[in-house]
Design a binder for these strands. Structure first.
Lengths: 290, 290
DNA sequence: AGTCAATAATCATTATCATGATTATACTGA
DNA sequence: TCAGTATAATCATGATAATGATTATTGACT
């Protein structure tokens, strides 16, 4: 017809894929049927019938839903797809995938952190369990060992951040909890994998201050003094932010995309095929000079 | 109800699915080969060979990568899978899926917003284009019409939030930009679909104040006065937050999960099969009394 | 009790056809 | 002749169907 003249809209954008339509259809089932985590979806053969689609297409859709964390699939008898809480891990992973393509700097992260962390800390006053307090104290002890050089810098830094991570998981505001936990986790993983960026090394005066702040914060939590908590945390993270601001560097974003591999990929047969290199190795500018 | 207890997969955590391993493998290719958006991946038949897996499995993996926004797949000659920026939309959708299962309140959202928005506003000083300024002015005009009752409340509210959304997209900090844009978009969509929660109605004194604040902010932007911007925005969003705090209600989370359906699902054949209801309609407590 | 087999469900492969996008080619009309 | 449009060839994904392999549950048999 007359569609040959202008082709500004490829069909692929209008005619959506069958699997994607099924994904949205099942999401609609979840909200319409008010399904809660644990509720079962029909099994694959029934879904074929209900959705009038083939096995492969249904499975593609289920795979997408699973990768988004909305369902969990188990095998065997009594198995199948069940609605599931979207886990923090899945959400965190999606955020990291996004930031991987953005020019993110350490300073960018710390600016946000400075605003959220004091509010988060104040919000958990009165909500910490004795176990939480004990865990907080433990991180401080590890940090003290770090100062004395009895544990390595990495462990020291992780303990330092673990303090904040424990707090954030007690935060009653779901949005704030998510954001603070994400930021702290990201800082932890970036600190681990980016050797250049062991920010705040152990001989820095900051590390000593951090321990004092953490200890003072624990006291304030036990006194249930929200305003003191807020002030202390504000000073603490602001101090960290100032140090980071002096070195305005991009983070090593590679580890935002790939998770630490719990199980490496092995091709099916041909056991000799071990390396499995990327198909198109086109070496561009290296990390160092970009 | 013997299956009420949800056992989260005993061995699925050890023996992982082939498609998931391929997903991680390809992610590893992307960071190792330093692939940028637009770069092509091998085509499906080659991936079968490289990964020693069947077509269906490879396709499942590609579908997951596509749903996560890391690749885009096109058909036809010169088609195939290409690395892609993870879009804001995909990221926003993942965050919403997570929050759908969390007990989120309006107040929760506004507490975070109060902290981020002033910093975001200050950060865009000097970065707004004349087009941005014009767009900002336009939203203020629409709000004025809203006060006079010449546009409906929904349009009024959307224009009010659009002001903030325009600003957030100019923010140079990728993390802060993402968060502010997400929060404003979420407030917009929630305001649209939740009739109960047309917060800040047009006859409220807040709407009048908002216009004054927005106008004053535009002036401050033109003067490139970052501190004045920060102060004004802080007062503005704090005022909104106070109003919201008085009505401590849960948000209607259904529209966090479902995307606005651009194309409804239609089964393949059997055109009479129209309703396609959810398989297990188990009506639980309604929205009203929970 | 324990072991082992039957069973129920997903997981994975293979083969085949359908559909959309690109490119080259031939045809047509001023 | 030449521009412009049908038309066909080709390439690569999209979707279906059939089949066997795994894996977790269940229950019966020692």
């Amino acid at each position: 017809m007359s569609e040959a003249v202008f082709k500004p809209t490829p069909r692929a954008l209008l005619r959506r894929k069958r699997a994607d339509l099924i994904v949205e259809e099942i999401k609609r089932w979840i909200v319409a049927g008010d399904l809660r985590p644990g509720d079962r979806l029909p099994q694959e053969t029934q879904l074929e019938e209900l959705l009038q689609s083939s096995r492969g297409t249904v499975r593609e859709a289920l795979k997408v839903l699973e990768s988004q964390g909305l369902i969990e699939i188990t095998r065997g008898a009594k198995g199948g797809a069940r609605v599931s809480h979207v886990s923090y891990e899945k959400t965190s992973s999606a955020l990291r995938n996004f930031l991987y393509f953005e020019p993110l700097t350490w300073s960018n992260i710390y600016r946000v952190r400075e605003k959220l962390e004091p509010m988060m800390a104040a919000s958990v006053v009165g909500l910490l369990t004795p176990a939480d307090i004990a865990a907080l104290r433990h991180t401080v002890e590890v940090c003290k060992l770090g100062i004395k050089g009895e544990v390595d810098q990495r462990t020291h830094r992780i303990a330092e951040l673990e303090f904040h991570s424990i707090l954030s998981q007690a935060c009653p505001n779901p949005l704030l909890r998510l954001l603070c936990r994400f930021i702290n986790d990201m800082l932890r993983d970036l600190s681990i994998s980016d050797p250049r960026s062991i920010i705040l090394p152990k001989d820095s005066s900051f590390a000593v201050d951090a321990i004092k702040f953490h200890a003072a914060l624990i006291d304030a939590f036990e006194d249930k003094d929200a305003e003191r908590v807020r002030t202390l945390m504000s000073q603490h993270v602001h101090g960290a932010g100032c140090i980071v601001s002096q070195r305005e560097e991009e983070v090593d974003q590679d580890n935002l995309l790939i998770a630490p591999p719990v199980e490496t990929f092995r091709p099916r047969r041909k056991p000799d095929r071990r390396g499995l290199a990327a198909p198109k190795q086109k070496p561009r500018k290296t990390k160092a000079n970009r």
